[in-house]
């Protein structure tokens, strides 16, 4: 069983608009003196609209939980795929990209905090 609580995670992105195939970098900070069980940053897309939701995590960056106790923001990088999709707002559905940070807290009952930040993925130019 896991519960998600109000987040004190701070997420900062170097760029909020990237081209498909680009890396997305940023920083994550989370005030804690006790190292969490797990810290990860995921890049994912999901659809909204008339169709049944589709969702996919395309990249995950694991962060050493010990680093969070040092008190400064930890950098991360995730990779968007060359083949897309791109952010899209259509007639029947939308495609939304986001960065999701998850901190799993120590304890018998797995409690986790999550924070998301939208990002826009556009076509790349050759």
């Amino acid at each position: 069983m896991s519960t998600i609580s109000m987040s004190t995670i701070s997420l900062f992105l170097d760029e909020e608009r990237v081209a498909s195939g680009d890396r997305i970098s940023g920083k994550l900070s989370y005030p804690t003196q006790t190292p969490p069980q797990e810290v990860m940053v995921e890049l994912l897309w999901q659809t909204e609209g008339r169709g049944t939701r589709d969702r996919q995590v395309v990249d995950t960056c694991l962060i050493d939980p010990q680093q969070l106790t040092l008190g400064f923001a930890i950098p991360f990088t995730v990779q968007s795929p060359d083949e897309g999709p791109i952010t899209y707002n259509g007639f029947l559905f939308r495609i939304l990209w986001e960065i999701r940070a998850t901190v799993v807290l120590p304890g018998m009952v797995a409690k986790k905090e999550q924070q998301t930040q939208p990002v826009s993925v556009i076509c790349r130019r050759s």
């Binding site: 659809t47 049944t52 939701r53 996919q56 899209y88 495609i95 076509c123």
Partner: peptide, 12 residues
Amino acid sequence: ELPSFLAKHNQI
């Protein structure tokens, strides 16, 4: 135009 997108329930 738009690039292809082929998920299970939503497609271009």
